[in-house]
């Protein structure tokens, strides 16, 4: 816990901004059920254990990500008569690879999560939105010349997709 908060020792007060979604930005189409949509397209998924996948060979891979599986909402009907019918939340499948399946659900968070990101403010007034928010390492919080560290809440997420059971084997082409 102490190392995690070491970042804050360098500077007594760090502003925590709230990024309001801008109406001009058009996030990519969100394939999740609308209830799970957020202005930034961010969502939260929790599962037991870790997902192992073959690390790509940097040169040969044009893609910046590896598809590891598919999410299925078996009870969800996009043309359902009653959009307030939330029974579909009770079941979500997560197929990993070809042979494993996790069963889970969509849960409303009792306490929503704020997704926090580091924002670097340069002295020339231009904001550089950094990809990294490092609150957990020894190297973090290093104040380079003219860079003041600031944090921002990029999104408040109110639901999570959670898989709390172990994966079960499934045969062949399920999806």
């Amino acid at each position: 816990m102490c190392t995690a908060l070491a970042l804050f020792n360098k500077m007594p007060t760090i502003p925590l901004h709230l990024t309001k979604p801008t109406s001009t930005s058009h996030p990519p189409e969100n394939p999740l059920p609308p209830l799970l949509h957020t202005p930034t397209g961010l969502a939260i998924l929790e599962l037991q254990g870790t997902i192992h996948f073959p690390m790509p060979i940097p040169e040969s891979s044009a893609s910046s990500s590896t598809q590891v599986g598919k999410l299925v909402f078996p009870l969800y009907k996009s043309d359902a008569l009653d959009p307030n019918d939330l029974k579909w939340m009770k079941r979500v499948y997560f197929y990993i690879g070809k042979n494993q399946r996790l069963t889970g659900e969509v849960r409303k968070l009792g306490k929503p999560f704020a997704v926090i990101k580091k924002r670097e403010k340069r002295e020339n007034g231009k904001d550089k939105v950094g990809d990294d928010v490092e609150m957990g390492g020894a190297e973090e919080g290093i104040q380079e010349d003219g860079i003041q560290e600031e944090l921002e809440i990029v999104q408040v997420v109110r639901y999570k997709i959670v898989f709390s059971t172990r994966p079960e084997p499934v045969g062949g082409e399920e999806v």
Binding site: P31, F53, Q67, G69, K70, K111, D131, V133
Partner: peptide
């Protein structure tokens, strides 16, 4: 929505370059 309707499934991938984000639980 197209993907959900057509195939009933949503592709899930993992980015190679992971960002460092933190989750802060928000009290009421």
């Amino acid at each position: 929505m197209a993907a959900l309707q057509d195939e009933g499934s949503v592709p899930f991938s993992i980015a190679h370059g992971q960002q460092h984000l933190r989750l802060l639980e928000l009290p009421a």
